[in-house]
Amino acid sequence: MAVDKNMNVLIVDDYKTMLRIIRNLLRQLGFVNIDEATDGSMALQMLRNGNYGLVISDWNMEPMTGLQLLREVRADAKLKPTPFIMVTAESKSENVIAAKEAGVSNYIVKPFNAETLKAKMVSVLGDF
C-alpha cells in the first residue's frame, strides 16, 4: 500500500533547531502535515488527542524522555501500532538494545542525513 504523504507526523526534540531540520527534510520528502513537541509528555498528550501515522523522536529530553514516551505509546492500546523512529546521539549498544526491547520501529544515530532518514522511514512505512 502506498504511503500517504498527507499523514500526520509528530516530531519530538528539545532542540528547536533539530525540529526545524527534521521538519525541512520531511517537507522535502513530500510530507506536509508535521507537528512538533519539545518533550515526551507534550508528545504523549498530542498523540492521545490526535491521529498520527509516524513519530520521530529524540531520546534525551526532560521531563519525559524519548524512551519513556515510547514505552507509554506501546502500553496504550490505541497508540500501540504507531510507527516510532528514535533519532538520537545515544549510540551505545545498550541504548539500541533498550530501545528495541521497548518496541522502537527503527533507530537513527545523529548526525544523520536525508538519505538515512528516508531509508528508515521506508523500512517502517513502506516505499514512497
Binding site: 534525551n60 545515544e90 549510540s91 551505545k92 537513527i108 544515530v109
Partner: peptide
C-alpha cells in the same frame, strides 16, 4: 533510562549508522 543517557560519544568511539 537515566543510566543510559550518556550523550553523544566521542567521534572515535561513536557507532556508525551501519553498526547501529
Amino acid at each position: 533510562d537515566e543510566d543510559l543517557l550518556n550523550g553523544p560519544q566521542l567521534p572515535d568511539k561513536a557507532k556508525k549508522q551501519d553498526e547501529i
